[in-house]
Design a protein around this nucleic acid. Sequence first.
DNA 1: GAATTGTAGGGAAAAGCCCGGG
DNA 2: GCCCGGGCTTTTCCCTACAATT
Length: 325
Amino acid sequence: MQPLESVTFEDVVVDFTKEEWALLDISQRKLFRDVMLENIRHLLSLGYQHCKSDVIFPLEQGEELWREGTGFLQGQSPVILGRESALKEQELIATQHISRKDTSTVMPVQKSHTPEDPFEYNGLEEDFTHTFMLTQHLLTHTEKTPYISQQCPKSLSDQSYLNQHKQIHTRGKSCECHLCGKAFSNCSSLRRHEMTHTGEKPYECHICGNAFIQSSDLRKHNLTHTGEKPYECHLCGKAFSQSSNLRQHERTHTGEQPYECHLCGKAFSKCSALRRHERTHTGEKPYECHLCGKSFSQCSALRRHEGTHNGEKIMNAFSKYSDLR
DNA sequence: GAATTGTAGGGAAAAGCCCGGG
DNA sequence: GCCCGGGCTTTTCCCTACAATT
């Protein structure tokens, strides 16, 4: 693995001049605010306490986030600049937190994290995984790339580059959506695509009322009412209502695993299995028990856990009953 | 050793969207 | 230009098994 360089506060901010800020549309400005707030909260969680009000407040209040000449963050108030030395000290701490694990001289940290804190360092190997993930994530925000392609995940550092890049998507396609910039080879395709923005769904199921953009989608949907499964696996005879579901099933016979985790290389037969696996790297646990607050990475794990509470309830009820006797 | 938890394999159903052929 | 079918991708929910941990 390549060594990671230390990350400073300036590394994880994206700073705009007035001119650059003016080029962003509303959604891009919102994205910028969300990303900056997320970055700053990560740093605060690492003990990097400066600028809580000076930076977060404008972000939260939706103020214009640019400064004349220097940019929003470089142009901070003299109050902030006066805190330079204390700030540097805290920054050093934060930097040490998110440095590489083989750094042999890890300084003691000022802010101690709770045992649940997934980013706790303290030299523990298993905790670094999440710190590394954080660092990786922070690094994704270090480039000044406000020009974002709307057709692919690419972001570019200059308007002219973006214009060049756009041609990749529009080449040979004369009809462009004025809402998202996506290009189509014929205008009926564009009209159909525009329905995804307007919410128009002209094909309605007369049984359940569900509506669809395309007639073929309605036909597909109708199979769920008729129970018809025209796609049959030639190996085991199992039948499916959609060809793609059959293909998915066929991978269990072929062993094909086209979805690979870019972090550990493990491969999966389904996209959703990969997504689920990725949560083991990010530490994300979106399923929370409403009784004890414990979180789980998988819905089924939560349900299984909830069953243990049911066991408790039964035991409690039993002990109450015993008390009454 | 039992209970609990983390993780992954796989099934099933469904929807969104695009492409190409007629 | 339009309709239609096919195909790709993704999402959600579910059940289950196995290994690791408590």
